[in-house]
Amino acid sequence: MRRLEGKVAIVTTSTQGIGFAIAERLGLEGAAIVVSSRKKNNVDEAVEKLWSKGVEVMGAICHVSNPQHRKDLVEKTVQVNAPLLD
């Protein structure tokens, strides 16, 4: 069993570099991942890469310096992943 099965992780600024590597590792350990970036194109590419590796992943546009974006990111994550969080 993968040790993070049934867990959900939000990884911000996670479409490239270290953030992407963290998201990938958490996903390969079994967590459902939410990746985010300011640019939709980057989010879509990261989701596609992770999905192709068997990672359960959702993408969201989020500028982390914007409080409303952060709030929306968490709310969307909870809504989509509610069955996992029960």
Rank of each mutant, 00 (worst) to 15 (best):
I18K: 04
V78Y: 13
P83E: 11
T77W: 10
K76G: 11
S65T: 15
L50V: 03
W51P: 00
L50H: 05
S65C: 10
S36A: 06
G54S: 07
M58T: 12
N42D: 05
S14P: 05
L50N: 03
G30I: 14
E48G: 00
A31F: 08
W51D: 07
A32P: 14
E48N: 04
V80Q: 11
K39H: 12
V34Q: 02
L26M: 13
T13H: 07
V78C: 09
A60W: 05
G6Q: 13
K39A: 00
E24R: 14
G30K: 13
E45T: 08
E24T: 03
I33L: 06
T13N: 09
T12R: 03
Q79Y: 12
K71N: 10
N42S: 06
S37H: 07
D72Q: 08
K40L: 04
S36H: 03
G19T: 04
H69W: 06
K40F: 00
V64T: 15
K76D: 12
A9S: 07
K76Y: 02
D44Q: 07
V35H: 01
D44Y: 01
S36D: 04
A31D: 10
D72S: 07
E48C: 00
I22F: 00
S14N: 00
R25M: 07
I61W: 04
G17P: 04
N42E: 04
P67C: 02
R2E: 12
S52L: 06
I10L: 02
M58V: 14
Q79V: 12
K71E: 11
L50P: 04
V74S: 14
K40W: 07
V47F: 02
P67N: 05
N81K: 15
D86C: 11
K39P: 00
L85C: 14
N66C: 13
E5M: 09
V47P: 00
A60T: 11
I10T: 01
T15P: 00
C62W: 05
A82I: 14
G6T: 12
E5R: 12
L4P: 10
L4S: 06
E48P: 00
L73P: 11
G27D: 06
L50Y: 03
N42W: 00
I18D: 01
K39Y: 14
L84W: 08
L85P: 15
D86W: 11
R2P: 15
V78Q: 10
A31Q: 10
V78I: 15
V11H: 03
L84G: 02
A82K: 15
N81E: 12
W51C: 00
C62Y: 06
R3E: 14
H69V: 09
D86E: 15
G17W: 08
L85Q: 15
V47M: 02
P67F: 00
H69F: 06
G54C: 05
S37K: 05
S52W: 09
N42K: 06
N81G: 10
S65P: 10
A9D: 02
N42G: 00
